[in-house]
Design a protein around this nucleic acid. Sequence first.
DNA 1: ATGGTCGTGAAACGA
Length: 254
Amino acid sequence: MKIATWNVNSLRVRLPQVVDWLEVHQPDILALQETKLSDEEFPQEAFGDRGYRAVYSGQKTYNGVAILCRQEPQDIVTDLPNLEDPQRRILGIRLGDICLLNLYVPNGSEVGSEKYVYKLDWLARVKDYLQEALAEYPKFIVLGDFNVAPGDGDVHNPEIWHETILCSTPEREALKKILDLGFHDSFRLFGQEGQSFSWWDYRGGAFRRNWGLRIDLILISKALVPKCTGCAIDKEPRCLQRPSDHAPVIATFA
DNA sequence: ATGGTCGTGAAACGA
């Protein structure tokens, strides 16, 4: 089984790349973030024609999440009972005894800003939800654009990024509280090449210089750890013309 | 590195 996540930064623009990528990699599940499409505009046929069911929670211009999968998804969740949020950033499904939560965590703009406070509160509420959900469904996957680099090893230059947005201690603590529920960062279960990132700024030739951060994560519950056989970042789509600023991440399971 | 980039949507704003 292959499960992937990709912040596409506009599914309208990236649709041909996503379709190509699906055909090459054949994941069982692909979680998308920043689709930037209303549900009426979602290109369901492009995926249906290729054997994927699609669920989505979209909005115009900003945010928007979707899940493409081979199996019929059940128990679709777009809003958490403890988190009232007009921004479409959350999409949960159940596939048999496995639950999956796709997140587009708020960016937070700047440490100390109003958006930063919203981000930390948002993460705390997601944590509370996951605590209950995990108790009911021990096989759980939380994946997406977390907009937090878990540690300095996930940052090209920790001195430049020290206590800045995506790397500040409160953001990392909020992420750690989710991990402490019993989740593992699948990427770190395996040996990786030094300096692996999933996002590079469009500006300043950041990708060419490998000035990136690893902020796109696939967290798996303890029950799934023995099943997980690998996790990798696919940098290839980031090399294409008109790329997303994020690369897809894929976890494989026996 | 503090944007010399994108995406959206038609000017700034968000990332």
